[in-house]
Design a binder for these strands. Sequence first.
DNA 1: AACATAAATGAGAATGATTATCAATATCAC
DNA 2: GTGATATTGATAATCATTCTCATTTATGTT
Lengths: 121, 121
Amino acid sequence: MNKSEVKVIGALKREGKFSSAQSLYQLLRKNGESTGLATVYRTLQKAAAENIVDVLRKDDGEALYRLCDTGHHHHLVCTNCGKTVEVEASAVEKWASTVAKNNGFKKVTHVVELFGLCQKC
Amino acid sequence: MNKSEVKVIGALKREGKFSSAQSLYQLLRKNGESTGLATVYRTLQKAAAENIVDVLRKDDGEALYRLCDTGHHHHLVCTNCGKTVEVEASAVEKWASTVAKNNGFKKVTHVVELFGLCQKC
DNA sequence: AACATAAATGAGAATGATTATCAATATCAC
DNA sequence: GTGATATTGATAATCATTCTCATTTATGTT
């Protein structure tokens, strides 16, 4: 990771929650960094490809990024308070690749997210 | 449902797969309809609010719409041509409810979609 | 039918996130 | 240091989506 990437990923880490590329860019500028918007996007895309960050989509389609705690995993999100639990899903991974094979699909990715109400809500 | 809505939803039905607002608009124009893009969006948003159509997001954030079938199932979608296969996923259903229980979540719903390239593409 | 009023429509502009372009700058091997 | 190469930031371009508004169409009343 080079200097720019450290700055972007560092900002994401400080945020500690799902953040958009735009908001990270603004944050960096506010902190006096000269980082460009394109670099923010480039860094986040690369990090997403390397599974360093998670990507979600808001209802309006805007992408949100978040530092991964662990490797590949999915989320259980409280629809009321936003609490997020990362969950393992090896069973789902297996299922996905089997289904893909059975239907002749290649390069299959999957979107798996769980939504509900946490204990407090 | 008024005339315009019938046209838009009808086009979606004829497509029989996840389609974007833009592609439906082009389809309608090709068929000689004078339907405007704004009307396509308005109709799809309304239909989504009424749970008449399913909404998904492509990787690039574009929204895809599809007439709801009855019953619960998931999709394997070709990211190139849009071909859609409905897949059963009882294994996934079980997994989802177990994870929910283990984390004290109630009323859990899930989003599970597979994307890839079909044989032709 | 004639009229008034409200709702829906389509064309095009505006918005906003993302991506592409490209000259300037930093990095690295030698 | 020198030249080759990769990275960067500013800015323009792109593209889906939303907004605006004049016009059309539906609806209700007499």
